Simulated assay, not measured.
Amino acid sequence: MTETSGSVDTPAAARSVGGVDAGTETESNKAARKRRRREPPPDPIPLPGLVDAHTHLAACGGRDAESVRAILDHAERVGVGQVVTVADDMVDARWAVEAAHWDRRAFAAVALHPTHAAELDDAAKAELEQMLADPRVVAVGETGLDHYWPGKSESCASPDAQAEAFRWHIDLAKRIGKPLMIHNREADRDLLDILAETTAPETVIMHCFSGDRNVARECVDRGFILSFAGTVSFANAAELRAAAELVPDDQILVETDAPFLTPHPYRGQPNQSYCLPYTARALAEVRGIDDIEMARILGDNARRVYRLPLQ
């Protein structure tokens, strides 16, 4: 068989695309994807009046007054005027209270995250109660149940320890009269049952709501506030969008849960409070209303629920 032009097996040529080695090109694409994951999303078009109902300033790099101010200045430029920074453990709780005093735009929520529930000894209880007397601390949270991590992480509290700590936090929220901020991961029924048997506080916030429309209806019927994060914009979140559509105007919040859960199309990239307008606009689209009106509803709700001062 006579070889013709283009039919010769030339491995080097086959590996080459436009004069660039295909193996090198593949590595370059992988490196580019990794770089993009480290890059922060661009600033959204400003959407005034928003409040980030749940963020983690420390995990976003805000570990002193200057860095917190920079994060909040950035957020304010796109319309996010106030944030609630949330604690997971006692070290984080102390820091969150400090951050709330460093900047007038920051407020704190303190509790032991359910994965840290085993750390809730008498000393921790006394310190949390003292922190929650501070007017800059506006909620008990995040507390609740996490059925995902037990068995996967040796340091995670057992389900029984989580339930016991959750009941204590519920009682604390009722005694001090501040909202209860809920973390719920794969524990819908158990969590709702505990809230029913203990009698829920007046204000319950379902942080980063992730349930389906049936769970959403039950929460709405009980008067709970549902807070939606960037997950509502994800391509695979049709059921979550259905839940977001049915929540009444006065029972909905928006949050970043930064540095996690960056909204589409920047999923996987670093999240901060300045990204909140992306999620607010996603909610506006789901609910079929104007972006500005959605921002007004979300901001007014957060200021009412957390009793934040008007700016």
Rank of each mutant, 00 (worst) to 15 (best):
R105N: 02
D190P: 02
L120T: 05
D221K: 13
Y148P: 02
D193Y: 11
P44M: 05
A100T: 01
A59R: 12
E3F: 12
S158T: 14
L128K: 06
V80G: 00
V8E: 13
Y266R: 00
M1P: 09
L132W: 01
G151A: 10
G299R: 02
R222Q: 11
R33A: 12
A295H: 04
L180M: 06
A109P: 01
E154R: 15
Y266V: 00
E76W: 10
N214R: 15
T115F: 09
C156R: 09
E129G: 14
A244P: 08
C208H: 00
H207P: 02
T2R: 13
E239C: 12
D190K: 07
L298C: 08
K174Q: 11
G223T: 08
P40H: 14
N184F: 02
A32N: 09
K30W: 14
L276W: 01
R15G: 11
Q269G: 04
W95V: 08
A14W: 12
E285V: 13
L192H: 09
I45K: 15
L261M: 10
C219D: 03
L246I: 15
W168P: 06
E202D: 11
T85E: 02
G81P: 01
P46E: 07
V254K: 01
T24G: 13
H54T: 02
V138P: 00
Y148T: 06
H54A: 07
L47R: 03
E218P: 07
A258D: 03
T262S: 10
P179M: 02
P11Q: 11
E3V: 15
A14L: 14
E293Y: 14
R77L: 12
H264P: 06
H74F: 07
R136L: 08
A32F: 09
A284I: 11
A187Y: 02
R213W: 11
A237H: 08
N271M: 04
L310D: 15
D9C: 14
T256Y: 03
V20L: 13
D89V: 08
I289M: 15
W102I: 02
T115Y: 08
L112V: 09
P42S: 04
A216Q: 06
E293V: 13
A109L: 03
L276N: 02
I292A: 15
A200V: 04
D190M: 06
A126Y: 10
L261Q: 00
S153Y: 14
E39H: 10
A124M: 10
I292L: 15
Y148S: 09
R241V: 10
A65G: 13
A235S: 15
W102F: 05
R167H: 09
A196V: 11
R189E: 15
L276M: 09
T55N: 07
G49H: 04
A295N: 05
M294H: 05
V51P: 00
A258N: 01
I225W: 06
E154F: 10
D190E: 13
S28G: 13
T55M: 09
A100S: 10
A111F: 02
T279D: 06
K125P: 05
V84R: 00
H264Y: 12
